[in-house]
Computed example of a mutant assay.
Amino acid sequence: MRGSAVSDGSVWARLPHELADAVRPRIPEIARACVDGIAAEIPEYSRSFGEGPARVAAIEQARRGIERDIDRVGTPAMWQADRLAEFRGHGRTAFHNGLSREAVQAAVRVSSRVTWRWIADIAREAGLSADVLYGAAEGMFADVETSMAAVAEGYRAAEAAMSGTGERHRRLLRALIAGRTPAEVDGLVAASGLPVPARVAAVAFRALPGAPEFPRDLLPEHVPADPAGDPPAALTPAPDTDLAALANLPAGWTAAVGPLVPPATAPESFRVARRALDLAARGLLDAPGPVVWCRDHLTTLLLLADEFLVDQLASTTLAPLAGVPGKRREQLAETLLALVQTRGSAPELGRLLDLHPQTIRARLKKLGELFGSRLDDPGERLRLELALLAERALPGRE
């Protein structure tokens, strides 16, 4: 392997232990800086490394790697075999996640450059000599060659192991839901020989601990799917026919079907599907079976897209109801929602709510006292309707 002769630990072994002692407390900061640098410079990583679990995992991975490298300072040890295996694993993972080999190799370069800058600054702060800086630079840049060669080796091995339409489907699925650029997706499509439909719906899956494995025969072979992946997902241009068998999902499994969208916005369809799974798990979306169809819950998904803003809207818009006792408040809120939605008369609202018109008139009088001219303002009526619908969608928030 190119570079392995110079990256055998001999350079690091000549460096003083004081360098390792100075760097070690700063490793968590260096790891975060590496991930930030990769996200900023490499578009293929910007979405996943920007926030969320993938960013946390990447920082932890970087921390462990830097820690192992620093452990070699002053130690006459060969480059660890497990470190090379780790970089080969990075190459395989990049391939299966739809990343290009160039992107993952660029990530190695960026990470090494960021790490070197931090180590150089720390060494200067510690008063270490220029010889130490030169030695650290020599060791790091030799390691870059070794690391990139291992990444390429793992990537090529994954390419060679790829066989069958199913694997090509999974790669295309990952590329689409991860928000790759059109050029990147076009390259994967050309390499796979698979057609991309004009519109697709993303599917998100969730399995409770202890749930059985996903049955392989629940989805047609032509549907790109990876229910065991991270995150579990599928894509289909014909959800009604392709996903019919999901009604037979085993106990412990749930699926949510996102909106039909152009392939370029498949990540948004997947985001909405995952949000629907979260809301369904909290009992905020009703579904007759294990499948949540987002198209049936668009209003609720919109209202609960930002729960903080929902709380703000409800608390400010419905403030006049704050001092009304529980049952009475519920009755007035029910009548108020019917009023702003229909602008009906007391008899009409009575028929709608199955109440005597005189009861409705009494409630309307009270609402008039509480809300005044706001009931005649179209903009205010819209705010009231949204606040009341959101309050219904999030029970217990009033």
Results as ranks from 00 to 15, higher is better:
204 A>M: 09
129 S>V: 10
184 E>Y: 07
51 E>M: 04
385 E>F: 05
338 A>Y: 08
110 V>D: 11
144 V>S: 12
184 E>H: 13
64 R>K: 15
154 G>P: 04
80 Q>A: 13
124 R>Q: 14
113 R>P: 00
293 W>L: 12
79 W>L: 13
320 P>I: 13
203 V>H: 05
259 P>K: 07
207 A>R: 15
105 Q>T: 12
239 P>C: 05
130 A>H: 15
10 S>V: 10
379 G>N: 14
85 A>L: 09
203 V>Y: 02
66 I>R: 04
87 F>C: 00
122 I>A: 04
280 A>Q: 09
332 L>M: 13
274 R>K: 11
211 A>W: 13
58 A>I: 01
342 T>K: 05
194 L>Y: 04
271 R>Y: 03
320 P>N: 11
163 S>W: 00
396 G>D: 06
89 G>R: 12
234 A>P: 02
277 L>W: 01
44 E>V: 03
123 A>W: 07
72 R>L: 15
40 A>W: 01
378 P>Y: 11
125 E>W: 03
284 L>W: 04
231 P>F: 03
120 A>W: 12
125 E>P: 07
89 G>V: 00
293 W>Q: 14
82 D>L: 10
362 A>F: 02
335 T>M: 11
116 W>S: 13
308 F>Y: 12
82 D>S: 13
378 P>H: 10
75 T>N: 13
279 L>V: 06
264 A>P: 06
333 A>S: 09
149 A>Q: 12
251 A>I: 07
297 H>K: 05
291 V>K: 11
134 Y>A: 14
123 A>C: 10
106 A>I: 01
265 T>Y: 00
267 P>M: 08
194 L>V: 08
220 P>R: 15
260 L>D: 01
346 A>P: 04
56 V>M: 07
326 G>I: 13
333 A>D: 08
105 Q>Y: 01
235 L>K: 06
235 L>H: 01
190 A>L: 10
168 R>T: 04
293 W>G: 03
279 L>R: 07
153 E>L: 08
241 T>S: 12
323 G>F: 09
150 A>I: 00
150 A>R: 04
198 A>C: 08
177 I>A: 01
69 D>V: 14
383 R>Q: 13
17 H>G: 15
81 A>M: 07
2 R>L: 12
93 T>L: 13
338 A>I: 07
257 V>N: 02
105 Q>I: 02
151 V>S: 06
222 H>C: 05
242 D>E: 09
272 V>Y: 00
91 G>W: 09
239 P>N: 06
48 S>Y: 02
55 R>D: 01
38 I>E: 02
349 L>P: 02
226 D>C: 12
390 A>C: 00
108 V>N: 06
158 A>K: 10
